[in-house]
Design a protein around this nucleic acid. Structure first.
Lengths: 233, 233
DNA sequence: TCGAAGTTGGACTAATTGGTCCAATTTGGT
DNA sequence: ACCAAATTGGACCAATTAGTCCAACTTCGA
């Protein structure tokens, strides 16, 4: 991706902004503005990457969408690839948050119910994140694989244990916890990733409260209906 | 995409092969070989498009994977875009088949059960199709939108009516048929589209019979568990 | 065996694009 | 007001790549 590396400079520029080394102590607005700008660029990149793919997006488009010059963008991010990596990393963090806050001590049905709702809201409010994550994983997640293996894996394992303990206590019908988690991910993210298809078929999308509610209700019914213990006789 | 349109020729070449106009009647092997070759190229393209995206794939890669020269590929397909369109169209046909064969007169649970199984097998046996379809839709389905609106829409509507009639007959618990269909699509396709993530977490994939069976069982349990009528008392 | 269709390699072109470099200007904290 | 950092525009380069063109070779049906 990097074409010419002619002479010595490069990387001397900036690349590790955010913390001003010399002249310590006083300016804040400046630093904050910088962070905002970085954020703006990353947001623009996120949206475009999600819509056109990484290879289908040019840095000029990103710069325009982020309302900075191409030069300035390259001043903030060493390369398009670097920008992509930062976008993906930030994305992953946002994406794993809900699973981390998956509370273990509550009633299982309430817990899962809440998790489904959080995930569905995430699909509604952050569709670009969902889509880019989707595309990255579909394509083999070259950048995410490392992150996907260790942190996610352990996180999931922890939740699997909780679910299994619920089952042992009879609070949940027997079910494979892995498939349960995958199913929740699949359905909730589907509403973001395939919104075009859903819209083509129903004419609606998650931003219409009525549709959001019916989706939420149905998903809960389907997921929870198969695992909620019934009173027999 | 097409760069130069210099003079008159082009399109005179071939472009509408498959049916030999002059000299009608006799050669078959030839025609068949051509179809096979087209198929081979389209298969190679499918795999690569699914893995690297359309913009991330070069015609040379496709040619190599299809074991033809770049020249020859361009002899069969007028352009990369044209090739992509044909791949997508073929894909859509494969993709809608299961829904069409969704039988209406059987027992609802058996019908849905069978549909889930077909879809999950499709994910197992045609992951590239699933992934490319996924990527296309995620990116807004520029090429599929037309097809997605009319044919798919009507197809889904027909099934929705069937499901509703089942509910009226008390053979199925009340559920929004659209969300039911979306959920089945979401979960089953997830096993193909997100196989990298699933593999990272579980270390398994659908080609292992044990894993396929556990996935199938869980999906059926979750989807059907929430809509199967129970005997009360 | 004749000839048309199929096939190839290779040279070539035009467009796109990531990235460099730099000179000039603006901004904002001190 | 000073000065460093921020920002811009634009020229420019090198790599990639879709697609053209063509001459030569092979294949295969009639």
């Amino acid at each position: 991706m990097a074409k010419r590396m002619t002479s010595s400079n490069n990387q001397t520029k900036r690349s590790e902004k955010s913390t001003r080394v010399f002249k310590p102590g006083t300016q804040k607005k400046r630093d904050e503005a910088l962070k905002n700008k970085r954020q703006r660029i990353m947001n623009a990149a996120l949206t475009l990457f999600a819509k056109y793919g990484v290879n289908g997006t040019t840095v000029e488009q990103i710069a325009e969408a982020g309302e900075v010059s191409k030069s300035n963008l390259l001043y903030y991010f060493a390369s398009k690839e670097q920008l992509y990596i930062e976008v993906i990393q930030h994305l992953l963090e946002v994406w794993l948050r809900p699973l981390k806050s998956f509370e273990t001590h509550q009633d299982p049905i309430a817990t899962l119910s809440e998790y489904i709702e959080i995930k569905l809201k995430l699909s509604r409010d952050h569709p670009a994140e969902s889509k880019l994550f989707c595309m990255e994983v579909v394509q083999g997640a070259p950048l995410l694989l490392n992150e996907l293996e260790s942190p996610l894996c352990e996180l999931v394992e922890a939740k699997v244990k909780v679910i299994n303990s619920w089952i042992e206590q009879g609070k949940l019908l027997p079910v494979d916890p892995y498939h349960l988690i995958f199913s929740i991910w699949a359905i909730t993210q589907h509403y973001a990733d395939f919104n075009v298809q859903i819209n083509a078929v129903t004419g609606k999308d998650l931003h219409q409260p009525a549709f959001f509610n019916s989706a939420l209700k149905s998903v809960k019914q389907l997921i929870l209906g198969g695992i909620t213990p019934r009173m027999t006789i």
